[in-house]
Design a protein around this nucleic acid. Structure first.
Lengths: 346, 346
DNA sequence: ATGAAAGCGCTAACAG
DNA sequence: CTGTTAGCGCTTTCAT
């Protein structure tokens, strides 16, 4: 690989001129800048990011930690994050913790050494572990809130509220709720949201317990849902909904005739099955982008923090930037309908 | 972050001793090593990878380039690659080209500067572009072969052969084939394989043309398949198969009663639909692992190439390491059955 | 076995 | 506007 020296030699200037011509173009004469640029192009010169990073103290690399890349939710997040990071000039190091809290923490400290900031998607570790692992370094939590850390979340409560309203409007009076994993932050949020919405709307909510956020989790929940006597069900996520529908079919029950089903996430398979799944759509791309933007903000602040000085600083402290949860949207497809006139089950 | 100097100061030794104690433990006395290790732990010292990289000339980072992270095939590859890379001590930089050949090439040259080697998964660019972009640097192609580059592929021909044999055994005599994107290397491989297998088995193969490797691509192909009069169809991938089945259903045709369908890839949704898809299963994890292993081999060779010298070197040249395509396996599920006794369609 | 010093490629003072 | 120089954190001769 060509270095500054090679370019400098070819252009007949010093290495610092090369550096300047390429990064602060306004600081050199047009003539030399031209020559340097040509020399650089001719040698296919690319500044060594490691060397620059060492000098400047920034790696222009972000770290992204996800629990499972094969989960379409995180695949989309990853796609959005790396795309947005690139537009900001950052590369992204991806690490998959395999849903393991221990590995998660280790990965955080591995990544920490080689990145400027971290995006932690749905981390499984405890609040405290997370706080100490991050240890004040730039980081943004996705789909999780921890006091003291920047985070970006979706409107979980709003999502389940929309679902319940939809079901009520169809005429359902008793709705089952399948909860997600016991440790899930968003699961807890949604459960709370469902209960609140149930009270508000006067719809009876029957919690059938915690189930894994997978197809088989949904299969396992199905029979309890049927036994509950509810005419509709809200699952923790789409995969569960799919498993539930499948189990129902095997039992000879039809969706939505015998039971209405609403998922959460709107993963792409939701439209590939029939009937297509009624579910809550999450702005995945916006989530990923937002996380990167927030992280880059932090990074920029750390760098050029002495701009408008105390005035701007104080204003910021008085009114911290609004940090709303991202809106979600119920999308009604084929798995919801009016309840059977003659009672809950077949 | 703590540096070597901090550790050296705390341990009361020189910085070079710290470096040695931590990387070549056998080169320092047990006593000092102990002290250095304790100091390092106490300060939570982590060698700065960028600095080490600058000195040693290796970044211990690998680059992975994929066309689309949201495609479950590549999500799995990514998961496997980053996992395997970690066991070899490498971090991985992920870049998504959005199926765009132009971006792909640009990303290769961006990544090149900050990684030791590249894994290029199903690259869309031309052979020549790829060759010049890689330009002799360590790289491994996944799911694509280019003369002059290391690559790892699956047995595409074997997969379609198994599919066709299965259909023939069920009694099918005329099978439609939906091709993938015109530029796809594996698509071409499969098409060739189908034709060869057709000749061998005496089954008539009707190519209905190229379609996008997506659900909608399958929907679009469905009517041509029906019109072809074939009693079964081989699609380019599972997503197509799903779309095809869906379109068939809308036309009032049943799978597998009216038409048998075989996909390719065995993505996880294949089992989530009903009937579950008969498809060709690919060893995703092995593919990802294999690519990393091959890349790391190259890297190690470049480093310590003067081990057994000419003898080993010559032996290697005479007999290049076996590079077989990875075996695939047909998994028969619900979308294939005997053809209707009374003719191809309903 | 250990320390001193050079230097990886780059940028940011500091001269001129 | 441009050149010289120091030094980011680390490994690796080269001495001792």
């Amino acid at each position: 690989m060509a270095t500054v020296r090679d370019v400098a030699a070819l252009a007949g200037v010093s290495i610092s001129t090369v550096s300047r011509a390429l990064s602060v173009p306004g600081m050199v004469s047009d003539a030399t800048r031209e020559r340097v640029e040509q020399a650089a192009k001719k040698l296919d010169y690319r500044p060594n990011p490691a060397a620059r990073g060492l000098r400047v103290g920034r790696t222009t690399t972000l770290g992204l930690l996800v629990p499972d890349l094969e989960n379409p939710f995180f695949a989309s997040i990853t796609k959005a994050v790396q795309s947005r990071a690139r537009t900001h000039g950052y590369a992204v190091l991806v690490a998959d913790s395999d849903e393991d809290a221990g590995q998660e923490l280790e990965l955080v400290s591995m990544l920490t050494a080689q990145v400027d900031g971290l995006v932690l998607a749905s981390p499984r570790s405890s609040d405290l572990s997370l706080l100490t692992a991050v240890d004040g370094r730039p980081a943004v939590l996705l789909n999780r809130e921890v006091e003291g850390l920047a985070s970006l979340v979706i409107d979980n409560a709003g999502g389940v509220r929309q679902s319940l309203s939809h079901l009520k409007a169809l005429g359902h009076r008793s709705v089952a709720a399948v909860s997600g994993p016991a440790g899930s932050w968003s699961g807890a949020e949604r459960r709370r949201g469902i209960e609140a919405a149930g009270r508000e709307t006067g719809v009876e909510v029957v919690d059938v317990g915690h189930f894994r956020p997978t197809f088989s989790g949904g299969v396992a929940a199905a029979d309890l849902v049927v036994a509950s006597g509810a005419t509709a069900v809200l699952t923790y996520n789409d995969l569960q909904a799919l498993g539930l529908v499948d189990r129902l079919r095997h039992r000879g029950l039809q969706v939505p005739r015998d039971l209405s089903v609403v998922g959460f996430d709107d993963v792409s398979v939701a439209t590939l099955v029939s009937p297509a799944l009624t579910t809550v759509s999450i702005p995945l791309a916006a989530l990923g982008r937002g996380a990167v933007d927030r992280l880059v903000e932090q990074l920029d602040r750390d760098t050029g923090e002495s701009r408008e000085d105390d005035l701007a600083g104080l204003a910021d402290e008085d009114e911290p930037p609004a940090r709303p949860s991202l809106p979600v949207e119920l999308v009604v497809r084929g798995t919801t309908a009016e309840p059977r006139p003659d009672g809950p089950r077949a």
